[in-house]
Write a protein that binds this DNA or RNA. Sequence first.
DNA 1: AGGGTCACG
DNA 2: ACGTACGTGACCCTA
Length: 889
Amino acid sequence: MTDKKKKLLLIDGNSVAFRAFFAMYQQLDKFKNPEGLHTNAIFAFKNMLDVVLKQEEPSHILVAFDAGKVTFRTKMYGEYKGGRDKTPAELSEQLPYIKEMLQDMGIATYELPDYEADDIIGTMAKRGADDGFDVAVVTGDRDLTQLASEHVTVYVTKSGVTKLEAYTPEHMQEVNGVTPTEFIDMKALMGDASDNYPGVTKVGPKTASRLIQKYHTVENLYEHVDEMKKSKLKENLLNDKDKALLGKKLAAIKCDSPVSLTMEQVAYQGASVADLRRFYEKMNFRRFLSDMAENGDFAGKEAEGKQLDFVKLEKAAVASLPEAKEIGFYLEIFGENYHLAPFAGFALKIGQQIWVSRDVDLLKEKRLRGFLENKTIVKNVFDLKRTTYGLHRLGIEAQGIGYDMLLASYLVDNENNSNDLGEVVHQYGDYDVKSDLDVYGKGKAAAIPDDDAVFFNHLAGKVAAIDQLKASLLKQLKDHEQDDLFDAIEIPTARVLAKMELNGIKVEAKTLQALQKEYGDRLKELESKIYQEAGEEFNLNSPKQLGVILFEKLGLPVIKKTKTGYSTSVEVLNQLKDKSPVVSDILAYRQIAKIQSTYVNGLLDVIDPADGKIHTRYLQTLTATGRLSSVDPNLQNIPTRTEEGKQIRKAFVPSTPDGYIFSCDYSQVELRVLAHVSGDANMQEAFKTGYDIHAHTAMKIFHLSKIDEVTPLERRRAKAVNFGIVYGISDYGLSKNLGISRKQAKSFIESYFDQYPGIQAYMDQAVKEAREKGYAETIMHRRRYLPDIHAKNFNVRSFAERTAINSPIQGSAADIMKIAMINMQKKLDELGLKTKMVVQVHDELIFDVPKEELETIKQIVPEVMQKAVSLDVPLLADSGWGHNWYDAK
DNA sequence: AGGGTCACG
DNA sequence: ACGTACGTGACCCTA
């Protein structure tokens, strides 16, 4: 405090709360905590505090409140503040909580019987200024501006609560033409309607200001009133002299009230992180909680995690574990890839008791296995699929996992989602569990701690957190109408996916090895040819070196640049093809090299030697739209567009002799979803009639009378428009895609909206709704939050708008596929079939079918997929089969 | 670790 | 006028 200026911040609690309440009045119904308490004013109050704390960096703070209705002013003048509307109950219920929050934030509050908050502030401001403080006053009420001085700045909230107008003596002069002290006299003359005292008849701000500029005080004015020439004003002044003098007493803030506070008592303590966290939890203020986490407010003591009570489970004690209907269970597998990563331990919670162990073999003991395999004992976990797969590796077939915290948190907010339990928990304001990163470390150095106390406490914290957050996550799901999405879609999907991952798909190494040889030879040939054409050897895989060769040595025109240099993408190279023969060879090399490294070599590396199969992992909680993704390896991007690439599919084969790979994919599912959600009659009609939708679109937008008049070019263009629509079309994007002029693209789009008017309406509605609600939603109520929809930046906002259009379409299609998968697995089980569902590629399902089941599968798969949901247009699924994935088309 | 490129729906 | 299609993952090179 020696060289840093002392800064005292004084806040008028009542007036700021009042402003805060009305600033967020429209949000009144949205801001309620689980107990039904309104929280809008508390929330806005906190926002204001954040802004002011950051701006002022005070060393001392006091928030003053009015003590009650009766004050020395009401005693002086019975009508003072009379006739005011009663404070709304929705606001008064919040005041005690604002005080509680302030206490948690380490900020002093004070009220004084008989005095208003203003007088407390005036008194403290004077004391502060006398003690050498810089003083900042924050209020929602202009009365306090009379305190402005060299050392006191008064901030009045403007339009909302976080914008502040700074009243210095200079600003006061600009606004009212008087000094802050003279402002009291000015008010005395003009009165105050909201405080219900009259002032002099017919004197408003203009006249009052003029008079005070001339006479400076009310008293002086009356000493010279006789000198004024006869006028209505003079008459009024004389008649209302009592009122003016009373007004001055009422308007003047008392700077010598008996405030029993020392400066030390208002020193800013800083927040009690734990208390504040509990408060935010109670208020359901998730944003502040995550802000705290991001700011590292939990660094230090809080982040150490809580010490929990737990018991190390010994083998001998397993048999006597208590009975339970519901248990919390956490299996620690050390590493992302739970197919292969080593087990590290587990934690079990029954009632309030927690057991932990490093020895996962204990799970195979009768009692524990009984818990895990009994479907009537509900298990609460974090990551159902991971847990199920891990237990399977131990020979335990999990049943009855009914709640998955990971899936729940993904549905509630798929934006800030994490697979790390600690991270998830932090987002919900609980800091009793550390993140795995904090406990295990990262990269090569990552390890399970040897120290039992550390490791077990972490495990115990995890299993405790699953229980602790369950109610609030389920409540949020319910509030979002997502209970069905959770119980009937995501949880069962996780079970199906676990099965699919376990099934795996058989991949023949010898087929890939043959390709490896073939492509290796071709790459060698291309390589030497390119070196010859370029006149030197270089690293063909380096875009940088390639750029130098093409654009500097060979002098080809630069078509596009990247951040780091010349672009050498296909798009660019295609345009340079006829300029130099080397370009085509480079394109050919690139294509083969990609297939060779990513698919031939990549897949050979991940065939499980134990069963000759590839077991991908599906990520169920990653995408923003609700789609799955596939990793280690990605089986959702196996080549299909080029013949060379497609060869890879020949290596994917059935696991039984003479069996089949059966493939079934939805036809135009996203456009069908669009037809459904938009309600566009023309598009619905097209699907109901069973037209080729792209040809139909071509007929419509090119104004042909019959669908068979459509040329292949027209169909291709119409197809691009259809895709574009789903993505939130722009003329530029379409023109680039089709290689046509922007103008032409624009006319296609206009024609499209003309022919399918419901689509245009849908797009407008989607954007409007996203703006109002802050999120876009699928047919199954999956949400995607779009905060950028309000962005000032055009690009950022436009992106959010396209997302608002696309997400419900892509996401609903994903919902439909998940339902189909659940129904499909159920059907396979019911019929006792040996056929296995092995791969999902967004709109396509792949099955490993024994020979004798092919006929059944041909019947049931398309049917189940088509009946997954009932839309206003039919769903159509096309099947194909063969002795490998290549032939299954 | 991040960018460029390219594989898929 | 803005600068642009939506959603992913893996490989390679270069820092």
